[in-house]
């Protein structure tokens, strides 16, 4: 009996011993990119004007107006000055489709995300949403016009 118990014990001990597993800790590959990181192509003059008009007015720009804008564009050497003026002119047009202020102060994150989709064709990253919320909440004058103006005169809006 003692022999049987000894054999059983040894057998159990034999099968209970396992080699120590080597545990490896590693990070799964995660793609980390900037929100607008894939935009490497600069819009041409015509593209910039046409897209800006469509984004604000919800319709295609007329040929006559496009020609006038292109002439104005070519008539001044600092294109950023002219583009800034074009955007300001668009924003001052009563027919431009601009959200009301409550939509900014209400669901601000929704407004920012919609604005990013409209102008940048992407969603804002979590960090961008956080920063925008902070900027808008901390300013008494931040509103749809200032937000739209900032986005449309930014470098990213010039690229696709």
């Amino acid at each position: 009996m003692k022999k049987v118990l000894l054999i059983l014990t040894l057998t159990c001990l034999f099968f209970s011993c396992n080699t120590e597993k080597e545990v490896e800790y590693e990070v799964d590959p995660v793609s980390v990119t900037q929100g607008g990181g894939n935009k490497n192509n600069q819009k041409s003059t015509t593209e910039f004007i046409s897209i800006a008009y469509a984004d604000l007015f919800g319709t295609e720009i007329s040929q006559a107006r496009l020609v006038n804008l292109s002439i104005a564009y070519s008539s001044f050497g600092d294109l950023r000055v002219i583009e800034d003026r074009i955007i300001r002119n668009f924003l001052n047009d009563s027919t431009a489709i601009i959200p009301s202020t409550p939509s900014v102060n209400g669901d601000t994150i929704l407004f920012i995300n919609n604005s990013y989709k409209k102008f940048f064709n992407r969603e804002a990253t979590e960090f961008e949403k956080y920063q925008w919320l902070s900027m808008i909440r901390s300013s008494t004058v931040a509103g749809p016009l200032t937000v739209y103006y900032s986005l449309m005169t930014s470098d990213e809006y010039r690229f696709y």
Binding site: Q34, G37, Q131, W132, S154, D155, E156
Partner: peptide, 11 residues
């Protein structure tokens, strides 16, 4: 706002 947006863009 524009400085922030430009800072997040690589061009």
């Amino acid at each position: 706002m524009r400085q922030f947006v430009n800072g997040m863009f690589n061009h």
